[in-house]
């Protein structure tokens, strides 16, 4: 009984501290100072149509590198926790003919859509993280349809490590050729709004897409094997 009263006291305190945020909330009418700089100078400096991508990959590129590292550490933790039960092979039931046929039609389309999303990340809504998740969902349908693990272990780890390595390498190339770490001007900026524009952003975002996709597939693989 005392525990329940304590819980409700905590919840009442949460309401008390959050009420000022709601009652004193003033909707913004213009952009903040930093955003004004990003919106006015972004198209000239970075050349990406999608300003969110310009901020993620170039202005705050170091944060994105850290984010990919956090994702990698979480995946490594999952692999560490679930790696013990490798030995025994369970006999799994065959999946239904509807799922198998649907997978054959859908799998290439989903992978193609994922690649489209991350290659066009600097032009349209989307980008590496979204494209990577779409690719992982395509592999998930494959894992559901084929009961034995059909994934190529070497290809998966190869994609993951090479894309992460190339991401850091391109970032370090910016130190030598352009203004600083992860600068996108190591390639010409090109014509605003075209597919081949915004310097190194499409390459970096494709690498992020491959890395995120490979890591999420790793999580799915570990959860399925367990």
């Amino acid at each position: 009984m005392g525990k329940r009263i304590l819980i409700w006291i905590i919840l009442a305190l949460f309401i008390y501290i959050s009420l000022p945020f709601i009652s004193d909330f003033i909707p913004s009418h213009e952009l903040s100072y930093v955003s004004q700089k990003y919106v006015t100078d972004g198209p000239k400096e970075v050349g990406a149509q999608n300003l969110v991508t310009a901020i993620i990959v170039t202005y705050r590129g170091l944060d994105t590198l850290g984010e990919v590292v956090v994702l990698f550490i979480a995946t490594a933790g999952i692999g560490f926790l679930l790696s013990r039960s490798r030995g025994k092979k369970k006999k799994r039931r065959e999946s239904s003919i509807i799922l198998q046929t649907g997978t054959k039609i859908l799998f290439p389309l989903i992978i193609m859509f994922g690649i489209y999303v991350f290659i066009n990340g600097h032009l349209t809504p989307g980008g590496g993280f979204q494209g990577g998740v779409v690719i992982a969902s395509g592999i998930l349908i494959l894992l559901l349809a084929l009961p034995d693990n059909p994934l190529h272990e070497f290809l998966l780890s190869f994609t993951e490590s090479i894309s992460g390595f190339a991401y850091v390498l391109i970032g370090a190339l910016g130190l030598v050729v352009a203004a600083g770490f992860l600068d996108n001007k190591i390639l010409p900026l090109g014509k605003f709004g075209q597919l081949f524009s915004a310097g190194a952003i499409p390459i970096i975002y494709s690498l992020i897409g491959l890395k995120v996709g490979a890591e999420l597939v790793n999580i799915l693989k570990h959860l399925k094997n367990d």
Partner: peptide
């Protein structure tokens, strides 16, 4: 400047979702 919403919170949310 007068036609788009603030991009910085969108960036933070994209990071936070992953």
């Amino acid at each position: 400047l007068t036609e788009v919403v603030d991009p910085v919170p969108s960036v933070l949310v994209l990071t936070a979702i992953v």
